[in-house]
Computed example of a mutant assay.
Amino acid sequence: MAIEGVANVTKIQDGPLINDKPSTITTLTEQQLKTSKFLPSLVKTINIAYQGSEQKHLGESQGDRLKSADELVLALRGDPESFIIILSQPHAPEEVLSTATCRRYFGRGPDADTFPWACNHDPAADTEEWELKLLATSPAAQGKGVASYMLALAEREVATRFLAKTHGQAYEVAQETGPITKVKIIICTPKPLYGNYYAKRGYQEDYIKIREKPDMSYEITFMSKTLASRS
């Protein structure tokens, strides 16, 4: 069930001060992202952030997280409810300082048992789940609480959308499943890198997979957090 008008309106709001300068938060749908001025900088920021984090915490980088802008668009999976949040500043309006992507999660995919980063669970019948993907911050804005700000913003956006579309009615996916009464956000992340970070922000560990490589193996933790519920 889509939120009326969400695909037609670009959401823009004031963000926090970064290096004593104002910032802007822009929220886009997949369709808006395809033609966005932010696309080149988004890919660059995500790749630099992931490479730096991997090098620092795992001892080596796995290379570019995204090979192209098309790969970023595909991450939203063609779902009109998916969205990407972008933090930029007026003095450099096309430069992305931080970003977070959220998409709905419908259950196990065909690669759930073979791809270590794929979730291998199905949502409970009464729960809508969203995946947080590609949370990344440019080195120029790291160490200033920006990632936590973006995480909280993504959580609030998911909760707000869920409560808006379920307000005053039983939100039913199908007659046999009954009403959806709560919404969760789920993440997967290398446990040595960010397991404690998300745990401190209310995420519970659900299960673990092992990322096995000849010269480096580590745990991938799959975590979740309930954001909102309705009776």
Rank of each mutant, 00 (worst) to 15 (best):
L39I: 08
E94H: 14
E157Y: 15
K209Q: 00
F106R: 08
I85S: 02
A118K: 06
S138R: 08
L33K: 05
E128F: 13
F162V: 04
R211H: 12
M150A: 06
A174K: 15
E81G: 10
V183M: 06
A170V: 09
D126K: 03
G178F: 10
W130K: 02
A75K: 06
P93A: 14
D70G: 00
H121G: 12
I180Y: 06
E95K: 15
K165C: 04
I18Q: 03
G52I: 05
T127Y: 05
L227S: 10
K11W: 11
F83M: 13
T26S: 09
R65D: 00
R104M: 12
N19C: 02
R161A: 07
H91T: 10
M1C: 10
Y105P: 07
T114E: 06
V146R: 01
A174M: 15
P110C: 06
L132G: 03
I18Y: 02
Q89P: 01
A75F: 06
T114N: 07
V43Q: 08
Q55S: 15
V6G: 04
M216C: 13
P192H: 12
Y50T: 11
A92M: 12
D64H: 02
I220V: 12
Y197D: 03
S82K: 09
P190C: 09
I180C: 11
K37F: 02
F115Q: 00
G63F: 12
C119R: 10
T24Y: 09
I180D: 04
H91I: 05
C119Q: 09
W130Y: 14
G59F: 07
K144G: 02
D20L: 04
Q89W: 04
Q204E: 14
A112K: 01
V9Q: 13
A136K: 08
I210Q: 15
I48K: 15
K144W: 11
F106M: 12
I48P: 07
Q55Y: 12
K200N: 09
G15W: 00
L66A: 07
E219D: 10
D206W: 04
P192S: 14
S138H: 13
M1I: 10
A152D: 14
I185C: 08
I186H: 10
Y171A: 10
N196D: 15
S68H: 07
V73R: 06
G202Q: 11
D122T: 08
L193G: 04
E176M: 14
I25D: 03
Y171K: 06
G143Q: 09
E54G: 04
F115D: 11
I210R: 12
H91M: 11
H57P: 03
K191D: 07
G107Y: 01
E4N: 13
K144D: 12
S36T: 00
K200C: 10
A140C: 08
R108L: 09
K225I: 03
S88G: 01
A152P: 05
R156N: 13
S231Q: 14
H57V: 12
R103P: 01
R156K: 15
P190R: 09
W117A: 08
Q142R: 15
K21P: 07
S53A: 13
Y105L: 05
T137W: 05
N196F: 12
W117H: 11
R108F: 04
S138W: 02
E205K: 11
K67L: 00
T226P: 00
T160M: 13
